[in-house]
Design a binder for these strands. Structure first.
Lengths: 236, 236, 236, 236
DNA sequence: CGATAAACGAGACGGTACGTCGTGTCTTGAG
DNA sequence: CTCAAGACACGACGTACCGTCTCGTTTATCG
């Protein structure tokens, strides 16, 4: 389970009654994802999810406050499957995670659900917190891991101030996640290898340096495939 | 009017009977924004909009296909008010537009509507096209204008290949818009001057160069306030 | 239609909208009676009635406040079909109407509905008034008609005081209707010709005179069949 | 306890485990009556009764098959409290019992429950039998007792044929009970002393003799208060 | 005395119906 | 042909009870 559901009064208090079915939780989240694929966010109904899961509607409402909460939990499980590839350089690591993230956003259940729950969360503070805890914060691990790996490789300097390091991680996370989400869902254009390369180059070298980079020319900032040689970015 | 609504049978077709009330269009879009502020996307109903606008529901359906289309038109008008400030340098221009964009996203009607219509558009191709045409493509003008201005100032080189130039503009647009939207609506954290500066520095100079940039230290890449002097980015 | 339904704001006010379907009213009441036959009062649901009538649930709720009100109207139509036979003597008139009333109470839709709405009406004053207006008061015509006919025949004296006459009519109505209902629905025993005769004899002659009257002996208070001769009750 | 509840497998069967709480039975029936007063038949729920009685729902279902059975038992206890007053004459005895019966029907728990269980019983044979055994048959004792008392007094002749006597008792019972129930619950008008007198006069003397009897004139069929003299009805 | 067995409280469970609400269409009469 | 008004068919909502079940606990009688 990704995050807490409707909390029991006390976690350790002996309930004194029939315990909640553990199997139902899994069946419901599975059914929710299937319904998202078949129907999309708008046409998904809790009644339909209950039927698919072989569960009564009341069981569903006993555990989740509504459609948004349920869907957040259902898709959060998918986000937890994201991994940062170790491809030998920061640039290719970024490209890899961008493509994986884009692939995740390309799945119908994620595509239709993510923006919808974010939209809901703008007018629902508890939901906003749930989205943040279940999805956003959990994926920052990818940025942290990537940076550490790059620092070990010597591709990035070590930031001594932890607060500044955290600020930068947040910024980088918003930039990467934001760019991919915007490209994929708002602009609705493909996030392919080509785009991932150009985005990574911009992120690493900045706007000025990137100018003129295109698909035709050789990209000197990336190591030849298979040869993990010099890092493209030289701190100091 | 931002974009085409439900098209009349033929623009030049015989006038026939009573002409459509022009005042109604404006009243409806205004009422839509007011309803978004009061109720948010989910609780907004077309019946309520019609009542607020002093119009019958049929009048509304005669002109828009549904809630999403109506809201796209209603918020697109707001996006058209965005402007690129001319502050003397590319960096401060970007910072300025980032803050203006964030202010727009902070308005309740925009906040709740933008992600919602994007979510809808993931499973509705005509709506996706409408969002692209009415909102996304129209705002790329800001990137194009900013680049041209920077080129005039000598802050950015001129890209000779028009296709590559367009690709870069699209990329930069997704990065800027995506980062701001993600920060404001997904991470749900404030887009303030401080964040705008750090984001701009990252965008212009890249990840390596930005490392270590914090609120305390002087940012050499930015000109002293009020003195539009040397550009912060030196091509070549 | 038996009684007023959910009243329009003003009967003479031009509504200014689509008028209510007159056909729907009839279809709904018909469907209600059919559902009573098939399901009985308790299992009857408004959703089912709506389906049977080919009508939306909202249409039903727009016109009736609830299940009780609907059923009152549906069965009231049946009660209006009751008639007082003109058989030549007061005794046989009463026997006839008792048997007809019993037959009506034997129909499944009436049997299950009548006591149920009366039960509801004990805790619902508006419903009580509706039952009284739609069913109870309307059937008193039978008593009034029977008395007048008997007075014409000379079987009953004319009561000069209208108030006393009304009081007596109410009393007789409660005795006749109450006895038949109690026999048929509470005691749950058959109301057959035999019972009708004995009841009529009791009503006309009183308890003392009736004592000893049984199925075997000839009933001198009744004229021979087919011969409308002397009235069984002699005023003065 | 009025009537059998859900029967144990066998009364003589091995005691086995924990015996049923005797206190629970009483608490449940008491709670049922209280709930009838507060909520009425329709809004009464078994869950609520269980809560009021401080008992689990399962305990309740272990003993009664459903709401109707429970309520029959709960109100049957009240009907058993009815008594036939010994006032010295048949007429005043009847008037007395009519008023007591009316007072019982005026209690909120009885009023709302009696018609409801009768309504249920029209489509539920076992319930019908339970109503008959627990309520209807038990109250016929009042008629039998009244008749016997009248016969001792010489107000009524002795019927030699037991079958005919039983038929008459049933008829009289339906007439009295039916009239009072109809007046009180269907017509929803008060059963006061005045009405009880006029009803008794009609029952004893028949329709013709009753004509003209009103509140103003002296009622010769009743003995002066306090003087148990001549019977009002003279059998031959 | 300990074992056995049923009753008990608590409350989750699969169902079913509720009465309301929003959607998008329709049917009126007025303009 | 448009418009305001509002009825209409449809379908989902979230809630309430139903009657059953599954727990852990209690309270008897029996061996």
């Amino acid at each position: 389970m990704v995050a807490g559901m409707q909390s029991r009064s006390t976690p350790s208090a002996r309930a004194g009654g029939r315990p909640r079915s553990a199997a139902a939780d899994h069946a419901i989240l599975e059914a929710t994802r299937a319904a998202l694929v078949d129907l999309g966010w708008t046409k998904l109904t809790l009644g339909d999810v209950a039927t698919r899961a072989g569960v009564a509607k009341t069981t569903l409402y006993r555990r989740w406050a509504g459609k948004s909460e349920l869907v957040v939990d259902a898709v959060a499980e998918l986000f937890d499957e994201l991994e940062l590839p170790d491809s030998g350089s920061l640039a290719t690591d970024i490209e890899g995670v961008v493509l994986r993230f884009a692939a995740l956003l390309g799945r119908p259940e994620t595509k239709t659900a993510l923006m919808a729950v974010v939209a809901e969360s703008t007018t629902d503070a508890p939901l906003r917190e749930r989205v943040r805890a279940s999805i956003v914060e959990r994926q920052k691990r990818l940025v942290l891991e990537g940076r550490q790996r790059a620092q070990v490789r010597g591709e990035l300097p070590v930031e001594p101030d932890p607060a500044a390091a955290a600020r930068t991680a947040d910024l980088v996370f918003d930039v990467i996640a934001g760019a991919v989400v915007h490209r994929a869902l708002v602009s609705a254009e493909p996030v392919d290898t080509e785009w991932a390369r150009r985005f990574t180059a911009l992120l690493l070298s900045g706007l000025a340096a990137t100018a003129g980079t295109g698909p035709a020319g050789p990209d000197l900032s990336r190591p030849p495939a298979g040869s993990p040689t010099r890092p493209p970015v030289q701190p100091h």
